[in-house]
């Protein structure tokens, strides 16, 4: 199978993250029989050769299996798309539209490509390929299916974890069924919260909370941590194989959520009488309040005094 990678409104962080894949990425591509036709950081074909390749894909002389799009589809200013042009000419979205008709599989790599992400609330008017935030439609429209009749596969994250993408590519190449949830996200990879596996869990359990940086306690109640409300395996499949933000003391910013980036301050939890406005999924507020008050009363000294180093 082959793959064409297009960057649009993004920072190339997903590409950079992909290079951190724990195995040898290049060998993996070779082993699973995946040919990278084009990736701006990895291919070395000349501009002319690239033009020919694009032309052949667009006139159907070259079959395209997988299209990976990184970054959102830029519609600004005022719907013209001219904030992101292809070769300084046409808006990039026209190329995205054309290529989308040609690929058997489309993978939206990262939150920007999936849901709009950075610039989706602003003059950049960034759209996800198939969604804008939680609303289906995005750039390609509600009814869009690939030429193989498949929905777009969303792999959110700012950036993605390399394993998320590598797993999907292997599923595609080996024709393994992919289960997508209501946001068209690969369910098997994103099926539990960032909170799961966080080394600060014991502090969370007893509501030992922090107001400022550099401490051991839980960051959910005041410091804006979105770990309990964000679906991603950051504390199961560790970043760069060694760590996660929440473990080290940086709150989760909810970067896999369709509404990322949140439109209230990142380092503050929106509270009602000391309890976060947004509670972990499915939790009843009254019960949660009672439980957390009791938990705090029951907190052992080693936690209350922050002796437990995380």
């Amino acid at each position: 199978m082959n793959l064409y990678w297009l960057q649009s409104g993004g920072c190339s962080g997903d590409s950079m993250s992909l290079l951190n894949y724990e195995g040898n990425l290049f060998e993996l591509f070779e082993n699973i029989g995946l040919e990278v036709l084009w990736h701006p950081s990895l291919a070395n074909i000349s501009p002319k050769e690239h033009d020919t390749l694009l032309e052949n894909i667009l006139n159907d002389t070259k079959e395209l299996d997988i299209l990976c799009i990184e970054g959102n589809v830029v519609m600004g200013p005022d719907g013209s798309g001219m904030f992101d042009t292809f070769r300084g000419g046409e808006p990039k979205y026209k190329l995205i539209e054309k290529l989308s008709q040609k690929a058997s599989y489309i993978v939206a790599v990262g939150t920007c490509a999936s849901f709009g992400g950075i610039g989706s609330y602003d003059e950049m008017q960034g759209l996800g390929l198939g969604y804008l935030h939680e609303k289906k439609g995005g750039f390609l429209g509600k009814e869009f299916l690939t030429k193989k009749g498949l929905p777009i596969i969303n792999l959110p994250g700012c950036p993605i974890q390399p394993k998320a993408l590598v797993t999907i590519l292997q599923k595609i190449v080996t024709d393994t069924p992919i289960n997508l949830n209501k946001n068209s996200i690969d369910e098997s990879y994103y099926n539990f919260t960032v909170h799961q596996g966080c080394t600060r869990n014991e502090y969370h359990e007893y509501k030992v909370e922090e107001n400022d940086f550099g401490e051991n306690g839980c960051m959910f109640f005041h410091l804006g941590c979105k770990g309990p409300t964000t679906m991603a395996p950051c504390n199961k499949y560790l970043w760069n194989e060694v760590n996660s933000k929440t473990r080290v003391g940086v709150p989760c910013f909810g970067c896999t959520r369709p509404d990322f980036p949140q439109q209230h301050p990142f380092f503050e939890t929106q509270n009602i009488v000391g309890t976060p406005l947004e509670l972990p999924k499915g939790v009843d507020r009254a019960h949660y309040l009672a439980y957390k008050d009791m938990a705090w009363a029951a907190a052992p000294k080693r936690l209350a005094k922050r002796k437990q180093r995380v």
Partner: peptide, 24 residues
């Protein structure tokens, strides 16, 4: 970077006043 700040790219462990990272 991941050991000191949680992940690379896109972490935010450097904050005004020092680093957010505890227990390095």
């Amino acid at each position: 970077v991941a050991i000191l700040g949680g992940q690379w790219p896109h972490t935010s462990h450097i904050v005004p006043g020092g680093v957010a990272s505890a227990n390095i």
